[in-house]
Design a binder for these strands. Sequence first.
DNA 1: TGACAAATGGAGCGGCGCGCCGTTTAAGCG
DNA 2: CGCTTAAACGGCGCGCCGCTCCATTTGTCA
Lengths: 192, 192
Amino acid sequence: MRSDARKNYDHILAVARDLLSGEGADASLRDIARKAGVGDGTLHRHFPTREALLEALLRTSFDALAARAGELTRCEQADEALLSWLREAIVVTHSYKGVITPMVAAIADENSALHSSCVDLRQAGAELLQRAQTKGLARQDMDGNDLFALISALAWLADQPPLVPRADHLFEIISDAILSRRTGGVPESQRA
Amino acid sequence: MRSDARKNYDHILAVARDLLSGEGADASLRDIARKAGVGDGTLHRHFPTREALLEALLRTSFDALAARAGELTRCEQADEALLSWLREAIVVTHSYKGVITPMVAAIADENSALHSSCVDLRQAGAELLQRAQTKGLARQDMDGNDLFALISALAWLADQPPLVPRADHLFEIISDAILSRRTGGVPESQRA
DNA sequence: TGACAAATGGAGCGGCGCGCCGTTTAAGCG
DNA sequence: CGCTTAAACGGCGCGCCGCTCCATTTGTCA
């Protein structure tokens, strides 16, 4: 890659990170090009689709999340490990509002630039889930797809402005569903 | 309203019902106008925004859902009543793929044409929820907003093609969360 | 320094939701 | 019945969008 190309690539990525974290993952690509001071053509050559741009932005976060799952595998409480990782995964998806929808679409589309990122994410979660299941701490009737779906749902909920105030609470409710085998129910004293 | 206007109004609505149920709630409005054989202006005068059109399409279903909630209030098992109604509510939102996002946005926007429809829906659910809670059959730490959010999440999940195969199962998982007090867990034999 | 592949940027294409406005038409009245 | 008039009409035009194409510029290396 030529030096000017490299510079533009990096600069576009930086501008995109800025703009998308403010306006959400569906911000105008033309705006990004304008703000980066490059032509539309340049942006689209480096990132042919919106997914390609998102992939470049999310790749490192997703790798970190996969690594984190590895660490948590060595945690004593398999249920707490899963829970912590879920929380972190959702935080990552909140880097860019609205990013979860293309991610879900990508997991079934091998041609999407986001595909492998999403598959990796699902795999990381699936391992933590399975460990919790083996120890009898999570519902047995779930797999990695279900976990991915529930993460998606929680991420989507937290992307909807009217639902934001209850997002944490909804996380608890759904967590309880996943880890329902843990206690057979949350003690009265711990409920909101 | 003049007779020609009435005819166009009805015809547009019929065409929209057809087209939106196939292509989803974000189908092109211009396409609807074209297919109905009217100009863009005519469509937009009758339905100033997409929300207005959706409202006209959903109104009767929502009213029916509210009435259904009333009926179910007289059902013996408050938990089963809530569950049935949830299922029906989600079926209604599936009339038009992608309709849940504008609905969620509308519940916090009093100026949206969809606002009152959504408020009514939330209210209907809230009553069934409260009855189940009173009888100790549903989580105490939830209100109508939470229920609405969970319905939204389930509706959204079922709108995502890759997640469709697991949608029913995810419904069960989240139902268990809402009605967790019912049994303290699903018997091993009933799990997938 | 010259040649050339690589990279650029912006005009252009077909799409969108929607506002505007000159034209047509239904409907009530003398 | 014909006239009038307000209501309804349709579609052009605006500013967006993602994306493609290609004449022009620029970095690189012999």
